[in-house]
């Protein structure tokens, strides 16, 4: 743990992202109902819950995919809750406000391209969304589009081959290669992204999100369809991202093994309502969670070793 404070709930003291009274309604369906939670700076926060609990909807609201029906979503650069800056931005109707400690961003007011570029919140998808027809390297360069556009004088300098643009492009490629090395895909930089095997595509998607230099990285089921070894590698990679780049991670995950192992903080949703919030150990023993999410603990229910073997093996099968 890099940032350890005295408070019992450190995510309340230094939240990088807060979701406040969020509601999302689709016609008659209330997918999220008055949901509030914090994501601590430098924490790995897991958002869990049974299927249809509204986890992905929360992600879609945070990253500007949906405009929430109600509520406020604040991303913060710099230490602390920065309450005055948040209030000021809310009152004045601005999308963001610079404060002494850094800056605050009201995500529900921002279009999605600003959320990734300005507020530095990046995400991946449950069903991988790479640009399949472009090369692996190009996928990572698209994520650095804005830096390159500015450096190339909005393309004019790029056509003329100005030195400043060449330098920026070199830096962009260097950053891309850095992340490719960490996901073990340098050799495949010039292959079409769509031709990579499933597990590689998952890691490439995370690498691409990291090329945005995010403050918060939102991962939608990063371990889905990975075999146990790949899933262990992924845990190490996520820890590496958090420890060396200080990126806070918010992830949706079904694999309770992964969640309990790497999460500093777990938020449990059920039917769009938060039913538990705390560190992994506290959530695990919360009777409400056991009742709603785990139901009867399925591992305990199956006592025949062969069946258990089959079940854990089945986790490695990729699904569409």
């Amino acid at each position: 743990m890099t940032t350890q404070t005295q408070s019992l709930y450190r995510w309340k003291d230094d939240p990088v992202l807060t979701v406040e009274h969020l509601s999302m309604r689709f016609g008659g369906l209330l997918a999220i109902n008055d949901l509030s939670f914090e994501v601590g700076r430098g924490d790995i926060t897991a958002l869990i819950g049974p299927n249809g609990a509204g986890k992905t909807t929360v992600f879609n609201c945070v990253t500007g995919f949906y405009k929430p029906t109600e509520g406020r979503i604040v991303a913060r650069h710099g230490k602390g809750a920065q309450t005055e800056a948040v209030d000021h931005a809310t009152r004045t109707g601005k999308r963001w406000h610079k404060s002494g400690e850094g800056a605050v961003f009201l995500l529900e007011r921002m279009p999605d391209h600003e959320i990734s570029q300005k507020a530095k919140v990046a995400r991946t998808f449950q069903n991988i969304r790479l640009f399949g027809g472009m090369t692996v390297l190009e996928n990572l360069l698209v994520a650095q589009h804005n830096t390159l556009m500015v450096a190339s004088g909005y393309t004019v300098g790029g056509i003329l081959g100005l030195p400043s643009f060449k330098k920026a492009e070199k830096a962009a490629i260097k950053k891309a290669v850095y992340w490719l090395e960490h996901v073990g895909l340098v050799d495949r930089a010039d292959d079409a992204a769509g031709d990579l095997p499933y597990g590689d595509q998952r890691r490439l998607e995370i690498a691409r999100a990291m090329c945005l230099d995010p403050q918060v990285l939102c991962l939608d089921e990063p371990a889905a369809g990975l075999n146990p070894r790949e899933s262990a590698d992924l845990n190490m990679f996520l820890r590496y991202i958090r420890d060396t780049h200080g990126t806070s991670i918010l992830l949706i995950e079904h694999d309770m093994g992964v969640v309990m192992e790497i999460s500093d903080h777990v938020v449990v949703l059920d039917y769009g309502v938060k039913i538990s919030d705390g560190d992994a150990a506290a959530v695990k023993n919360d009777p409400k969670v056991i009742a709603a999410y785990l139901g009867v603990d399925d591992e305990a229910e199956i006592d025949v070793p062969e069946v258990r073997q089959d079940l854990s093996g089945a986790k490695g099968v990729p699904h569409e």
Binding site: T63, G64, F65, P111, D112, H113, I115, S116, Q117, A122, R123, F125, R129, F131, G132, G133, M134, E138, L141, V142, A143, H145, N146, L148, M149, S152, Y154, T155, G158, I159, E169, R208, L212
Partner: peptide, 22 residues
């Protein structure tokens, strides 16, 4: 160029390109 790359990205998946800051 970066503009061309973002155009191709938009061709393939406009929403994703937007989430990457294009």
């Amino acid at each position: 160029t970066s503009l061309g790359r973002s155009q191709r990205a938009c061709e393939q998946d406009r929403k994703m390109a937007s989430l990457l800051g294009v």
